[in-house]
Simulated scan of single mutants.
Amino acid sequence: MLNVDAGGGDRLAMAVLAQYRMATTEQMHLIIAPEVRIEQTRRRLAKLRAERLVDRVTLPQAGRTRAWFVTRYGAQVVAEWPELRGWQPSKLVGDRTAREAAGGPRADRDEDRDRLPAGCAPPR
């Protein structure tokens, strides 16, 4: 089983990203844990990334601003939670944002295909 904390912090972070599709580190911090130091939010997101539940892109021309999103694998996990019953990854044009911001990952390789945002088809 995944090491997603039962206390809800990881679960909340995943739910926020699933519903908002993308959020910067600072936005995530303000939503999920504004009372703690931002380093704690960064560590939480890094842990989720290590488990391949979320990934990030560095936005062009925004310094080192990172935008986070759930991976396909993360979307599968979130879709099984009772509180998000019926949630489906969006298949709107806007889902290309992460792929384009990252410079278009090569989704012809299996490891990159899993890292695309939920609902995002590989480039053709």
Rank of each mutant, 00 (worst) to 15 (best):
A101Q: 06
V70L: 14
Q27W: 06
R49C: 04
A18H: 06
T71D: 01
A75C: 04
A107R: 04
R109D: 12
Q40Y: 05
P34A: 09
R37Q: 03
Q27S: 10
L84E: 14
Y20T: 15
R49M: 05
Q76H: 13
M1A: 04
M28W: 02
L48M: 13
G9W: 11
G9E: 15
T41Q: 03
T97Q: 12
L45E: 10
L53F: 07
A67F: 10
W68T: 08
A46D: 09
V36H: 12
R52H: 09
G9D: 12
E80Y: 01
L116P: 05
K47V: 01
A50H: 10
G8F: 09
M22E: 12
L84C: 13
P117L: 05
A33D: 15
V4P: 07
I31K: 07
E35S: 13
W68E: 09
E83Q: 13
A67S: 15
V16M: 13
Q76N: 14
A101Y: 08
T25W: 02
G94C: 02
D95A: 09
M28R: 02
L12P: 00
C120M: 15
R64C: 02
A6Y: 07
A18N: 07
A67P: 07
A101N: 03
M1G: 06
Q19Y: 00
A67V: 11
T65V: 06
G9R: 15
T65C: 01
L45H: 11
V4E: 05
G8D: 06
L30R: 13
M1R: 05
Q40L: 01
R64I: 03
G8I: 11
A6E: 12
T58Y: 02
S90T: 15
D10M: 11
M22K: 09
K47F: 02
R21D: 07
R66N: 00
